[in-house]
Design a protein around this nucleic acid. Structure first.
Lengths: 232, 232
DNA sequence: TGTACATCAGTGAACGCGCGTTCACTGATGTAC
DNA sequence: TGTACATCAGTGAACGCGCGTTCACTGATGTAC
């Protein structure tokens, strides 16, 4: 499946991987038009010029395909963010010139990733597919994303050094298990959560089309929400 | 359909209205378990102990039922917010003791409304039902909600009287048509948009179950996001 | 290099299911005189 | 109060459709000697 395997793979294995990838491509295309809950193996097969049962050579059932799509989406987002974070760190050489530059870069990376393929974003963060429950390993990937946010936030921690901690931050001091052992202070945990919800707040309404016809530029609202978080 | 009609309605009309309401109740129950995209007239009929075609006496087709559910949801939210705004205004008697009390009250009202029936919130603000397009009159109700936010924001406008306007607010000065003629300044427009996206950001992730297992209290994050907006 | 066998991709038929929707019909309820 | 008619709720059969999934089979590709 991964590229590294291709070297040692037999022709048959390479063929299998290729068809699996092609199935996923058609699946994404179908999700884009009919939504994830209507994803149909038979329809994909027809579009590929194959008979329906043929797909069962490649995916045991519908849920397995959806799981792989979700896994791919999370991995792609995590990779995108990791790359963006590394580039941002490399450019500044450790001394961040811009305030909270890391998180601002990540915010922009999430946005452009989401706009490039809205269905991929919505499959992960949209209304859950009814009757589908994700396996555990997907939770692991999604917590990698949280770690990236916490790293970026820790590099340039929020200001207000000695202000009285808010109700939320005092709560997070005791309930920060989700940070997976990350040694970030409550203020950074708070920042990461706010980052997540604000980014998602603007993006999901935008992708769902709730801003269409309103006439303003969502990009500016998005930037303002993130800026306001970093200048806090 | 509305309660006021009941007085002058014939028995047959009252019966019709009652069955229509019962159909909607079962529809909500079904949406809660299988999601909106899988809403099925036949399944509703079966649950009501009727044959499938019987429902066509009450709704012309599936889309008409969904439209009515969406309309009801928007109306319910608008009513809830209106009531909350009136109560908040009445209590303060014009002089708002709490800063931005109006918007804080509205935020709380949205949240409890959404938690009371998550599917109703998600039907409106979640990932759109594929292949369904809402009629125009629904846009009108949703802009009523925006007006309520702008009214509340105008009552206690944001501070920082003479700070240089942000990029977004300068943009909104020219692109505020969506406010439907509301005479709010750009800072208030900005506040209303932030309110909407922040409330939705926390609520939609919470309702989609993305916080489950993380161990912190979403209510505190929600409050912090709104507070931060009002203290800006 | 050639033959015998094993592996595996893909097909077509079939199963049972549920869907939205139409249609001719029955039987109950309301209306007019 | 009673009868004749119109309205309308609900039924059952039917249409065509697509779904997920199983199964026995064909034919091509790879492997062992």
């Amino acid at each position: 499946m991964t590229m590294a395997d291709t070297g040692t793979a037999t022709p048959r294995e390479r063929y299998r991987a290729q068809v699996r990838a092609e199935i996923k491509e058609h699946a994404w295309r179908q999700i884009a038009t009919t939504g994830a809950s209507a994803l149909s193996l038979n329809a994909i097969a027809k579009q590929m010029g194959m008979s329906g049962p043929a797909l069962y050579r490649y995916y045991a059932n519908r849920d397995e395909l959806i799981t792989e799509l979700i896994r791919d989406a999370y991995r792609s987002l995590a990779d995108t963010l990791r790359t963006a974070a590394e580039e941002a760190a490399g450019k500044n050489g450790g001394t961040s010139s811009e305030e909270g530059g890391g998180l601002a870069v990540l915010a922009h990376a999430v946005r452009s990733w989401a706009l490039r393929d809205p269905q991929r974003y919505l499959l992960i963060y949209g209304t859950p597919v009814p009757g589908y429950h994700a396996p555990d390993d997907i939770t692991a990937i999604s917590s990698q994303i949280m770690t990236l946010l916490l790293d970026a936030g820790s590099a340039t921690p929020p200001e207000q050094p000695e202000q009285p901690a808010s109700l939320l931050e005092r709560h997070l001091a005791d309930h920060g298990d989700w940070a997976a052992g990350h040694p970030a202070p409550p203020a950074v945990l708070h920042q990461a959560l706010s980052f997540w919800t604000r980014v998602h707040g603007v993006l999901s309404l935008e992708l769902a089309g709730h801003f269409t016809g309103m006439g303003f530029d969502p990009a500016l609202l998005f930037a303002a929400e993130v800026d306001d978080l970093l200048a806090r």
